[in-house]
Design a protein around this nucleic acid. Structure first.
Length: 432
RNA sequence: GUGACUAUCGUCUAAUGGUAAGACAACGGUUUGUGGUACCGUGAACGAGGGUCCGAUUCCCUCUAGUCACC
């Protein structure tokens, strides 16, 4: 069986910029992705609700922020609270209209829009990378000790798929073998081969589970694989081609899309996108800053997830639109969109500087503020006049600074929500 | 009122007859498929006045303030 659930492309780049045509490495893509929990308009961004919660924010608030889908993490959830509990979860009893039918992650966290589960491969890699005593990678799978109670676990490709079926997510990701970009070539090559072998086992288990559970084409979850290969074009090619032969609904960019200094790796990110079939989803895992998302989208990527809006929000960094109050009409919308720099210009302008510093550019469409800075002490303006979130419409910068200063949980919640609104609006701009 | 003890960054604590250390707070920065309740930097003090001494935050005296005890 070849997974090729139709991904409707409404617009595949007829109006590609000269830059994109010249580079021939990607197209701005706008389309629709059908999941069992509903259609998602692409490109889209998913906040990370790693442990079945976007820290400090409720499902209702997430919906209002314009969040289309969420990412949960297989690794975290299998350890806590455990798959069995989520599988048994029922909807909340007190409000029938808000309940989510059946068990699984949707009912558990009361979120009825699409959910993607990450495999946990990256988390285990990260865990082992930081402390080799925490586990090891074998052909069988990833062995690791729980950070919670020290118990030993073995996460195999088959087990990862089973757990994600039990979670009852809409989109799942195969177990992969990520390596740092700095890893020796032989190591990266071996990781690619292992990623391919594991992907094959995941696909086999996936098909087995679809039959076992009697899932029809309409209600089966989508399966994504991950293209590894680090900085090496030949390995990215080998990996992508191997995965495409196995067949998946979508393909992810594995590893990091920035180098140690934070430079955006345009070449390898664009090249990898060009290896993926036009009718498949392209998932840029862990991307990124607003700048990086714009760039990746221009290079042909459709889906994004990142901790940045929520983590930065919790630490008092807020994303704000450079132009204010200009999103009521189509003309104003396109004007705002036009302020999004051409990624090529960005790459040139920033050369070897950190991609995250791009926001300091005068031409950038956004900037960030650290609300904890002294300058906001008596600033009674809205955080972002162009934003219509709860924070920006009801509270002042001075008040938010105060909330952070006194360690009030409300601070992180309002800031996270604001940043999620910013990201949702950014994706909306990219779609229009 | 009398006596004893104490006085060091904003706060809490070190050390020292010769450049005063640390923690927390403050200020600034970092964070990219969430071990971030983390990480990195920067400012910041010897209560006041006198004396001894080449030199005093340190030793002595007075004052001031605080704590405790007594009246």
């Amino acid at each position: 069986m070849r997974c090729n659930r139709p991904i409707k492309q409404l617009y595949d780049g007829k109006n590609m910029s000269a830059w994109q045509q010249q580079k021939n490495i990607g197209r701005r893509r706008v389309g629709e992705l059908a999941t069992k929990s509903g259609v998602i308009h692409t490109p889209f961004f998913m906040p990370d609700a790693t442990r079945a919660a976007v820290r400090g924010v409720t499902s209702d608030e997430l919906e209002m922020s314009g969040t289309a889908a969420l990412v949960v993490n297989t690794y975290h959830l299998m350890l806590q609270p455990g798959v069995d509990i989520i599988r048994k979860a029922g909807g909340p009893a007190r409000n029938a209209t808000h309940s989510v039918a059946g068990g699984g992650i949707h009912a558990f966290m009361r979120w009825n829009r699409p959910i993607l589960s990450d495999s946990g491969g990256y988390q285990i890699y990260s865990l082992i990378h930081k402390n080799p005593q925490m586990g090891r990678i074998t052909e069988e799978g990833a062995e690791f000790r729980s950070v919670l109670d020290g118990t030993k676990h073995l996460l195999t490709p088959e087990r990862v798929i089973q757990i994600q079926f039990d979670l009852d997510v809409d989109m799942m990701v195969v177990l992969d073998d990520p390596r740092p970009n700095s890893a020796p070539k032989t190591e990266v090559g071996e990781a690619v081969e292992r990623t391919l072998r594991w992907a094959k086992r995941c696909k086999a288990e996936y098909e087995k589970q679809v039959v076992l559970r009697g899932l029809t084409e309409k209600i089966r979850p989508l399966l994504f694989s991950v293209v590894q290969g680090g900085m090496f074009r030949e390995f990215r090619k080998r990996c992508a081609e191997g995965l495409i032969e196995i067949g998946f609904d979508g393909y992810g960019f594995g590893g990091r899309h920035i180098d140690e200094e934070g430079n955006f790796l345009e070449d390898i990110v664009g090249y990898t996108a060009s290896l993926i079939p036009e009718d498949s989803m392209r998932f840029a895992l862990g991307v990124g800053t607003p700048d990086d998302i714009v760039r990746c989208h221009a290079l042909g990527w459709d889906m994004f997830d990142c901790v940045i809006p929520t983590r930065e929000g919790r630490h008092g960094r807020l994303f704000v639109w450079k132009k204010s109050g200009v999103i009521s009409t189509e003309a104003e919308r396109s004007e705002l969109l036009s302020t999004v720099r051409d990624p090529c210009a960005t790459a040139k302008a920033y050369g070897d500087t950190r991609s995250t510093n791009a926001e300091d550019d005068e031409a950038s469409f956004y900037s960030t503020i650290n609300i904890q800075n002294e300058q906001f002490k008596e600033d009674f303006a809205s955080v972002d006049p162009a934003c219509d979130c709860e924070l920006c419409t009801k509270y002042t910068r001075a008040y938010l600074k105060h909330l952070f200063k006194v360690g009030e949980p409300l601070a992180g919640r309002l800031a996270s929500l604001h940043n999620l609104c910013f990201y949702a609006k950014l994706m909306e701009k990219l779609r229009n």
